[in-house]
Simulated assay, not measured.
Amino acid sequence: MFRVICVLIGYFVGCIQSAYVVGKFNHVDIRQYGSGNLGTTNALRVLGKKAGAITFICDILKSVISFAVCYKLFGGNIMAGVYASFGAVLGHDFPFYLKFKGGKGIAATIGMTLSLIVTFNPLIAVITYTAGIIGIAATNTISAGSIVFSVAIPVACFILKAPYELTAVTAFMCVLAIYKHRSNIERLRAGTENKFIKKKD
């Protein structure tokens, strides 16, 4: 039962759409611009670096706060925190009050890995963040780095001998991240994905 409670707590925290709120402060409905995605990358492209940074930090904090609350609520149970972060990703990806159209959950997933540094093993950050950075550097795209980062999490959990349930949940989150990036994957295959650093003419 604690799993359901934690997912629900995380979901409602995750439903706080940072990009949407930041956009409204700038008198912009970000859903109508760029990719229409309610995430950091679109906020950065549409609203600029400051708005992108605020969105990124807030989306990370949604997951960190959800993790911390449920971790403490259930007596230091690491899986309570993980399920809460999973819920935050679901809330971010599928907010009920925005027709279930949100972001792609990468910043919220980063929040979970930050929490796992303290509660599980700091090496999870070394493995996953390095993988994500390599993905970005090799392709010059945020989406590829995000996908590689997501795949690296259950792999890192397996390597670091995490509890089976933790590995299983992060594997499911990986599948969800790949699903949310399916249009990016098509553009990557076609060579038309937006570049992280654009070359000057």
Rank of each mutant, 00 (worst) to 15 (best):
C157S: 09
L160G: 06
I178H: 06
F158C: 02
R187F: 02
I185Q: 12
L160K: 11
A152C: 07
T167K: 08
C174I: 05
I153S: 03
C157W: 02
E186T: 13
A171E: 03
V151C: 11
V175F: 11
I185P: 14
N184K: 06
N194H: 14
A190W: 01
T167S: 15
R189T: 10
E165D: 12
L188K: 04
N184L: 11
L160F: 12
T170R: 00
E165L: 12
A162L: 05
A162W: 03
V151K: 08
F172S: 00
L176T: 00
A171T: 15
C157G: 05
R187S: 10
N184D: 13
A177V: 09
L188G: 04
I178R: 05
N194Y: 07
L176F: 01
E165R: 09
T167W: 14
A177D: 12
V155D: 04
T192N: 12
T192A: 08
R187H: 07
S183T: 15
E193H: 09
V175L: 15
N184E: 09
P154R: 06
M173S: 03
T192S: 14
T167L: 15
I178E: 07
A177R: 02
K180P: 01
R182S: 14
K161L: 00
V175C: 09
R182K: 14
A190Q: 04
F196E: 03
P154W: 04
I153Y: 04
K195S: 13
R189N: 05
I153L: 12
I178T: 12
R187W: 02
L176V: 01
E165Q: 13
I185T: 13
G191P: 04
F172A: 03
S183I: 09
I159R: 00
A152L: 10
T192R: 06
A190L: 03
E186I: 08
I153D: 02
F196H: 03
V151Q: 05
K161D: 00
V155H: 06
N194C: 05
V175N: 06
G191A: 07
Y164M: 13
L176Q: 00
